[in-house]
Amino acid sequence: MGQQLFIFGAAFLGSAVESTEALTIVLAVGLTRGWRAPLLGAAAAVVALGVLVVAFGQLIVTTVPESALKLVVGTLLLLFGLRWLHKAVLRSAGVVAMHDEQHAYEQAVAQLESAVTTRDWVGFVLALKGVFLEGLEVVFIVIAVGGTGHGFPAAVAGGLVAAIVIAAVGVVVRRPLSRVPENTLKYGVGVILTSLGTFWAAEGMGARWPLDFVSILGLAAVYLVASRMAMTLIRRPQVA
């Protein structure tokens, strides 16, 4: 039960971050060019992503041997999580600019305004591309988090609930969700995904963790301390 909740939470948080970025693009298109084309584009992307989850998720879970699956997916999840964590450390240390949904929104609007054509397909393609590319990360998180721990339904549920919640909030506020603490979320999810990746990669190697799934909390603590240490080192004044 605890493991299923953990998988649901990890998929939910990771998907919420990416859904926020996808929503910004759809909002930018919808508020500047009308809603029909971007909603159709977003719907087409969601269908394509759903097909990917069902096809690859089932294929991977049913055909790949468990130890190989854990090793490969664990390695990929570790690389994926470390990338988020690395970026979050640099942002928190102040050496890389924070991700800003308002800025992303303004960029998308500027891109749309420079498109002289008035045809709807510009909005359709931009929404399709934005939702599909951001959604690829959601698909990976759902498959990787759920596929290896016998928690595929929990992971799919986490991803779906996140997308629905973010879409619902977007419908209500109708502007970029700049108050979502996206960088903090990405930092937290980075720690969780890196820990899960390490756990599964090692299990794929044949290792047995003390306390089984609970040791993920210990791994999260190690990565949290390491990332704080990196931030402290980066912020430390440099001696010339």
Binding site: V89, T194, Y223, A226, I234
Partner: peptide
């Protein structure tokens, strides 16, 4: 794994 995270983040921070 934790050590490489510290090292690469620190190196990137210095570079930036």
């Amino acid at each position: 794994l934790a050590g490489q995270l510290v090292w690469f983040a620190y190196a990137e921070g210095l570079k930036q």
